[in-house]
C-alpha cells in the first residue's frame, strides 16, 4: 500500500449547510437543544412538508413542466420564496434581530469552487429524472410513494461516493 504523500492542499470545506465543520464558526448556536428542543424543527418541517405537497412542488409532473417551460408554477414558487427570504434576511441584518435565545444571527459568505458548476449540472440532470430535489424526496415518501425509498437510498449512496472521491475530484 502506497502511502499518501500528502502534497496536495486539503480542500477547503465550503459546505455551508454543515456548520459544525467551520473551524472559525461564529454563529453556531451554543445551546445544545436535545430531543425536546429539536422538536420545534420537526414542527417547522411538518408545516413545510404540507406546503410542499399542497403546492405540488413535490410533483414529478410539475418539475417536467418547469424544465420544458410549459408552466410558470415552479418559477413562481421559487421566485417568491427567494424574494421573501431576501427581504427577511435584509430585515434581520438591518434590525440586528436575534434568535429566540438572544444570540446574534450572523451570516457566512459562500466561496466559489468548480463543484458548484460540475455538481450543479449533475444534480440538475438528476432533479429532472427523479422529479424531486432532496426536500421533496422526503415529502414524496410521506405521501405514500414508498418506491421513493430506493431513490433516497441511491441519493445517500451518491453523497457517500462523493465523500469517498472528494480528494480526487476537481474543486
Amino acid at each position: 500500500m502506497v502511502k499518501d504523500t500528502n502534497t496536495k492542499e486539503p480542500i477547503q470545506d465550503t459546505d455551508y449547510e454543515v456548520r459544525s465543520l467551520h473551524t472559525m464558526c461564529v454563529n453556531e448556536s451554543e445551546h445544545h437543544e436535545g430531543f425536546v428542543g429539536n422538536l420545534k424543527y420537526a414542527v417547522i418541517g411538518l408545516l413545510f412538508g404540507i406546503v410542499f405537497v399542497k403546492s405540488e412542488v413535490v410533483s414529478w409532473f410539475r418539475i417536467q413542466e418547469m424544465f420544458r417551460l410549459q408552466s410558470f408554477h415552479m418559477y413562481g414558487v421559487i421566485g417568491t420564496a427567494v424574494v421573501v427570504g431576501a427581504i427577511s434576511i435584509f430585515l434581520i441584518k438591518k434590525f440586528k434581530i436575534k434568535t429566540i435565545k438572544g444570540e446574534a444571527i450572523e451570516f457566512q459568505d459562500k466561496t466559489f469552487n468548480k463543484g458548484q458548476i460540475i455538481g450543479g449540472l449533475l444534480f440538475g440532470i438528476g432533479w429532472a429524472i427523479t422529479g424531486a430535489c432532496p426536500g421533496p424526496l422526503f415529502a414524496q415518501l410521506g405521501t405514500g410513494a414508498l418506491a421513493v425509498i430506493a431513490t433516497i437510498i441511491s441519493a445517500v449512496a451518491g453523497t457517500w461516493v462523493y465523500g469517498y472521491l472528494r480528494d480526487r475530484l476537481p474543486h
Binding site: G115, G119, F123, G126, A150, W160
Partner: peptide, 12 residues
C-alpha cells in the same frame, strides 16, 4: 437518485 446525492454535495 445517485445524481441528486452526488451532485448536491459536490455543489455544496
Amino acid at each position: 437518485g445517485f445524481l441528486v446525492g452526488f451532485g448536491t454535495r459536490y455543489a455544496g
